[in-house]
Write a protein that binds this DNA or RNA. Structure first.
Lengths: 99, 99
DNA sequence: TATTTAACTTTGTAATTCAAAGTACTTTTT
DNA sequence: AAAAAGTACTTTGAATTACAAAGTTAAATA
């Protein structure tokens, strides 16, 4: 495919992963429950998208206990921030050529 | 899913359909061969994406003969232009909140 | 002891994407 | 006239992706 369309990152073609990453760009960290609430998807679905981002090295997963409750929190890695920001740049370039 | 992420059009989550529509926004019409060359995909694949866009009423298909050769050309409908432009607007809004 | 909560994992299904092969119709070449 | 080639598909089949629902684990609470 010609154009600058190739610069788009396949990982962010999914609405859910786009949503997760944009939340993690703005918030230093978010836990499973917060993400689930914001994205309004099932926990299994959320877990699998988080797993996909983790495999790409885009997020860092931290498991801990807060008080007596288990808590897993997610943060964007530098690598993930770079990838996401590159993707947004590619989208911007794409948009500006398209109108 | 919260945010303005819902405003993204599912039809344009595919790189190929994004490419087709952006070509048809810029060029009043393109034929099968031109699209195939620009997008660099197999003809079956192209045909099926064109079919998807047609089913949504986003493109207009015109079959004719040019000289002795069959020629099918594709153009964006008003409805398609609106949908695509709305999608780009949603992307722009999304981007501006994300950095 | 039974139930609840958090965060998964597993299972199974449906949808999506794609390449490759096949088809229909016509034209060009042999 | 028969064979080959070109255009634009359609069909087939395989691989990938996405998702919901149910099951799992471990600790906490009733």
């Amino acid at each position: 495919m010609k154009n600058h369309l190739e610069a788009l990152n396949k990982a962010f073609e999914s609405r859910v992963r786009l949503g997760i990453m944009s939340l993690l760009m703005v918030n230093a960290a978010m836990d499973f429950g917060m993400l689930k609430e914001q994205l309004n998807i099932t926990d299994g679905n959320l877990a699998s998208h988080l797993n996909a981002l983790d495999k790409l090295g885009y997020i860092l997963i931290t498991k801990q206990f807060i008080g007596k409750k288990p808590n897993t929190s997610y943060a964007a890695t530098d690598h993930g921030r770079k990838a996401f920001s590159d993707h947004l740049d590619a989208l911007e370039r794409f948009i500006s050529r398209s109108n």
